[in-house]
Write a protein that binds this DNA or RNA. Sequence first.
DNA 1: AGTTATCGCTACGCTACCGTAGCGTATTGA
DNA 2: TCAATACGCTACGGTAGCGTAGCGATAACT
Lengths: 193, 193
Amino acid sequence: MDQFAEDPRIRRSKGAVLAAAVELFVAGGPRAVTVDAVSERSGVAKTTIYRHWPDRAHLLADTYRSCLPVVAQPGPELGPEESLRTVTRALVSGMGTAPTRPALPHLIATPLDPVESRALPSDVMDQTFAPVVAAIERCAAEGVIPADTEVAEAKHQLVGFVIMSGIDAGCAMDEALADRIVELFVAGRRARG
Amino acid sequence: MDQFAEDPRIRRSKGAVLAAAVELFVAGGPRAVTVDAVSERSGVAKTTIYRHWPDRAHLLADTYRSCLPVVAQPGPELGPEESLRTVTRALVSGMGTAPTRPALPHLIATPLDPVESRALPSDVMDQTFAPVVAAIERCAAEGVIPADTEVAEAKHQLVGFVIMSGIDAGCAMDEALADRIVELFVAGRRARG
DNA sequence: AGTTATCGCTACGCTACCGTAGCGTATTGA
DNA sequence: TCAATACGCTACGGTAGCGTAGCGATAACT
């Protein structure tokens, strides 16, 4: 009766619906995720969609979450700088692959749309960046960068670099880029004292 | 007969329409800029709107452009680093004030929406960043940062920092921030060799 | 003063989309 | 095998938005 022993018909329907919704979101943003379009693309009847989601806003919220990258928090066995590098690599990798990358602009704008974000908490994005912030704080605490570093500002610096790279379709989102981003970040902060 | 000797009734109508459209765009993104809503908010009749814009897509395109900040290209009498600082200050200032700042996420997402961007050239945003790119190129050419700097990547770094700061409503977009951004940018690039 | 252009208003037809009801069919799990 | 459940299908009613037509009133130029 729990979600792991769910009726296979339900699992199939939900999966097909979310897959189609993500495709539509990537191609055309939240506005393209209409119940009719999702129904047609997924082959799942509209009435069935409404059996599993109360309304379009909740379907869109699940679609949105399906596009967010998941960045793992590295364990304490890694040093602070290694930790930052690991997290940044994960972020670059997640934001560099589908469905996140093509959806990136929409992922930024959707939570601020009062109509489309009705079923989304206002801090959805923060959760994704939490491991990055934690790594920056460790770097500041353990002397990799100055102890008086403004963490919020440092987050803007690091994450902004990653996001802008991801928005530029011609940019290679690989480990080398992640490492350069971390290196430039740390070098600049250190040089300034 | 030219656009400077335009009928004052036309000027008034266009101005009221665009002002209302920008307000709606800022508050709710492109989706909120409906012809009916603009008509009601501006007090200009819907039929009059269609006398000056062929369709909603063109009205939205003009609204979008009204929200873009204009960054002036500094003259050659400034040194390369001063030039970069001036341009960054202008960018931070422009992106830190209304209507650009509250519209920022929508400004990023709209050009990638195939429906909403129908009357927008794909490189609208590039024009805004062109002076920044030029300043970066001068810094690379005149030895402020390494000559082999990847300009596109450096643009992502600098502009990404500014945009992320602007999206965070709690961040002060002042000259001090602009100067820190430039300093961190240059210091990091220089330290890496 | 008279001509011309602009404006506001009402009323359309059309389309897309939301969310629901009712009914018959097919799959699942006991 | 059999009851329960999920599904697909068709058909709605309702709303929001686009773009147009026709008309009288009003403001601008000459």
